[in-house]
């Protein structure tokens, strides 16, 4: 049993999206054909994963709402580019990741080094005081360097395969694997510090 694989393992966590792949891949073509329920189904299936993805990026709540809308608009406008033979999720998350990346790149040109490496004591002292683990994890993910965060979110949270992640982020597969390893390592380390800090 792969005890420390980030992805599925024995997780009993409910996934928000409950529908078959066959249904999914037809949504956009149905939408293009004028079926108004198709896009609605897509929004309801993906609203939670996309909102969650944005919530784990360093984006304020108000901007998150704007980006959320922008992403669905882009999905709608690019619908004709989607190939129904391929899975929908990686395609959608390519748009999500690109939108978030563009937004963050526009906002700050210089990526700050994560505060967790700033000094020896847990810099995430505010983080450590959060009320529950999910909030804490969301805040810690915001502190990771961008590429590591993208890879973790896509692979570990959204369960997208690494080759698909590589294609989504337009990176070589080897680089994606490196980001994955470093991201996990960094996340566990800051998690341990924050958790220990929170308990004290």
């Amino acid at each position: 049993m792969a005890l420390f694989q980030f992805t599925p393992m024995e997780s009993t966590a409910p996934k928000a999206v409950v529908h078959s792949d066959a249904d999914e891949s037809q949504w956009l073509s149905r939408h293009l054909a004028g079926d108004p329920t198709a896009f609605e189904s897509l929004v309801h299936a993906y609203k939670k994963p996309i909102y969650g993805f944005l919530a784990r990026c360093p984006i304020s709540a108000a901007e998150r709402d704007d980006l959320f809308q922008e992403i669905f608009l882009k999905i709608h406008r690019s619908a004709h580019q989607y190939d129904p033979q391929r899975p929908l999720k990686p395609w959608i998350f390519t748009i999500v990741a690109n939108t978030a990346r563009t937004y963050l790149a526009r906002r700050k040109t210089a990526e700050p080094i994560p505060e967790s490496l700033e000094d020896g004591r847990p810099s995430s002292e505010q983080v450590a005081e959060t009320r529950d683990q999910k909030h804490r994890l969301n805040l810690l993910l915001k502190k990771l360097p961008d590429p590591q965060r993208w890879v973790l979110l896509l692979h570990c949270c959204e369960d997208i395969t690494l080759p698909d992640v590589a294609e989504t982020l337009n990176m070589p597969l080897g680089t994606v694997k490196t980001h994955l390893r470093r991201g996990r390592l960094a996340l566990v380390q800051i998690w341990q510090r924050a958790t220990l800090g929170g308990q004290s």
Binding site: F4, F6, K48, K134
Partner: peptide, 13 residues
């Protein structure tokens, strides 16, 4: 962490 990551972010629009 793997458990928590596999779950949703705990937030919805």
């Amino acid at each position: 962490l793997s458990q928590l990551l596999a779950e949703d972010a705990g937030l919805s629009p």
